[in-house]
Design a protein around this nucleic acid. Sequence first.
DNA 1: TAGATTGTTAATCGATTAACAATC
DNA 2: TAGATTGTTAATCGATTAACAATC
Lengths: 218, 218
Amino acid sequence: MEEKGISRAVIKRLPRYYRYLGELLEDGVERISSGELSERMKVTASQIRQDLNNFGGFGQQGYGYNVRYLYSEIGKILGLDRVHNMIFVGAGNLGQALANYAAFERSGFKTVGIFDVNPVLKGISVRGIEIRMADELPEFIKEHHVEIAALTLPKAKAVEMAEILVDNGVKAIWNFAHTDLNLKLPKDVIVENVHLSESLMRLSYNLTRYEAEHPKNN
Amino acid sequence: MEEKGISRAVIKRLPRYYRYLGELLEDGVERISSGELSERMKVTASQIRQDLNNFGGFGQQGYGYNVRYLYSEIGKILGLDRVHNMIFVGAGNLGQALANYAAFERSGFKTVGIFDVNPVLKGISVRGIEIRMADELPEFIKEHHVEIAALTLPKAKAVEMAEILVDNGVKAIWNFAHTDLNLKLPKDVIVENVHLSESLMRLSYNLTRYEAEHPKNN
DNA sequence: TAGATTGTTAATCGATTAACAATC
DNA sequence: TAGATTGTTAATCGATTAACAATC
């Protein structure tokens, strides 16, 4: 288990490396040094080398990093080299919008189902996938080997739903509800919280500071 | 300028304090000590006291913190004590979904307009706000004192649009496009990146590590 | 007053950056 | 080989935690 105890800070940066490497690949760039990459990404070259060396030596002295190889290796580390079956639980605006967003599919996150409790939504088709009722979840999860559930529903229902999902075999929850699900589920359930409203509040904080420092005349 | 140089780590935690205090308020809790709050939030009491003291002494020795007062003070720090006019640029699935999501409104983020470049969408109404064409942006921003623009469009158009927005007076961008807008705009433009696909990749990383450590027989 | 709990200083821990020997 | 750039160790910086005097 070489990849043991990688710090959260490093993991948070990995997808960003992956994105930049993907763009370089598209641009036909074959190799890149930590120095060049550091300039593009506005991080230190030292940090890039430290981060990558948590997972092994992907570079070559005097040469740098092969873009295609590094991209592929980081993809493997992130688990993007295989397909993950995903469902959306909560087919309101956000759930439908995300289910409609085909780009996740390209990274291997395959939407196999969409669920809600509201009978009005039953049968409505989102990107060819019809909305099912929540009582079908237990059977569906097992049958379709669902690993990931995106929770796009109000917080009042979130914990209850999450427990059903986990009990039936879902391993990871992508949580959009305004609650810290990780504190309310068994520790071995993987929870990634999104919390859009908190993101908007941080923006608001910075905006408020900025306006305090740059007072307007009108 | 007492609130100078607060660390990013502290600012990131503020909205979470705000959320927990809001829940306590709903539950009718009048006062809370850093110790009790630390237990609920699973952070150290020391961190709570350190964080809050960046902004001033909100507590009282021997008593703790008054929930209503602290909630209100953190709200002010986050700039939630006034209304921010916001527009959505990009009226695809995500843009429409977020514009439809009324909860931001309650925190003072008022959606005053929705824009797109696709004429097919023109005039479609989202929560009573009709979608306008992007060429109306300059006039609209000035007329409606738009402070915040949510960018919910493909990255190919993001920088170009962002520049138009900023040139016409938008102060902050809530960026959902897969690009680091902060690196491509003047430094004084406030950019909050969301990057949902990176969030999903972090989930995938943790899922992959978990499965490597818990091999299945089937 | 005595007990509780803050505000704040000091100690520890972890993450970032710098430096450089190893090596392609 | 000489030059370039990594991998990695050591130094620095910042953030978190512990401790406790101040005070309600």
